[in-house]
Design a protein around this nucleic acid. Structure first.
Length: 274
DNA sequence: ATAGGCGCCTGCTGGC
DNA sequence: TGCCAGCAGGCGCCTA
């Protein structure tokens, strides 16, 4: 499930392969992604040179000089640079041929929860994020911002962390891992946190995300980086997917509950309600 | 304000 | 052995 660390890894992997390269040709599969590809986009993209590739939350931003390609990997999206002679895998939906024809940028998405869209300039990309209420990057969210987000809310912490309008980039894995790191019960309400606990949570999120980026993200099933290589952070999970396994801190079996409609993993001893 | 449910989509797993 | 329900969870949308 590509979350911030996975998307960051993809962007870092792709950057040296893409920047300064020309997108010569675009091929599109018949199956639609969350948003269907407009034929006009192919015409606008063909011949463009990639000025930069970056990330905002879980969104990948491909600056093509004037137009911007904005990509979301959904649940099973893969955005990779591969040798053009390699046969495309099933569920490959977009193929961009790079200038020399030796290498292709491919978008593959088994479940097609991903989306790709084109904006005519940087300002329209920004408008899109503003319209969606996309929150700040986790390291941009300071103590005052967290206070404003948490102090009055009756939502539980799990729901708050998953809300992209609060902070951008956290999904189910890193929400659970951050709450374990902060020793906070995921069902606690935002308004129940003391200033000290708010700060603990804020720092835990940043720490967990940085550790995950250093390990190139988590590969449970489908995720791979921009170079096609799997991540390693799944070997570091403390609670996510560890139901019944001993807590790494106190050996109490990890429990699974459902919060905010998502499976939620926590240690009942280390992460108490109080 | 917030919770809960549905739909989108495929592949894997576990129970019978 | 084969079949099918259930699950995984990103986001957007709807209703209560």
């Amino acid at each position: 499930m590509p979350e911030l660390p996975e998307v960051e890894t993809v962007v870092r992997d792709l950057r040296p392969h893409l920047v300064g390269r020309r997108l010569a040709r675009v091929r599109v599969s018949r199956k639609a992604l969350r948003r269907k590809w407009s034929p006009a986009w192919s015409r606008q993209i063909q011949g463009r040179i990639v000025a930069n590739i970056d990330r905002r939350g879980k969104w990948i931003l491909l600056d093509l000089g004037a137009p911007w390609l904005v990509v979301h990997l959904g649940m099973t999206g893969q955005f990779t640079v591969v040798n053009a002679r390699q046969r495309p895998q099933p569920h490959t939906h977009l193929i961009f041929t790079l200038d020399d024809g030796q290498v292709e940028l491919r978008f593959r998405d088994i479940r097609r929860f991903g989306s790709v869209r084109l904006f005519q300039d940087r300002g329209l990309v920004e408008d899109f994020f503003i319209a969606g209420g996309l929150g700040p990057e986790p390291w941009q969210a300071d103590a005052e911002y967290w206070r404003d987000c948490l102090k009055h809310t009756r939502r539980c912490l799990k729901a708050v962390l998953l809300d992209q309008r609060v902070i951008a980039g956290v999904g189910n894995i890193y929400a659970d891992e951050s709450l374990f790191e902060a020793r906070l019960f995921p069902g606690l309400l935002g308004k129940e946190l003391t200033p000290t606990k708010r700060e603990t949570l804020r720092q835990a999120i940043v720490m967990v995300l940085e550790r995950a980026i250093a390990r190139r993200g988590s590969s449970i099933r489908d995720y791979v980086g921009g170079d096609g290589a799997r991540g390693n952070y799944q070997d570091e999970f403390r609670v996510y997917g560890q139901t019944g396994q001993p807590c790494p801190r106190c050996r109490t079996p990890i429990q699974r509950i459902v919060l905010a409609g998502r499976s939620t993993h926590f240690c009942p001893r280390c992460q108490k309600r109080t």
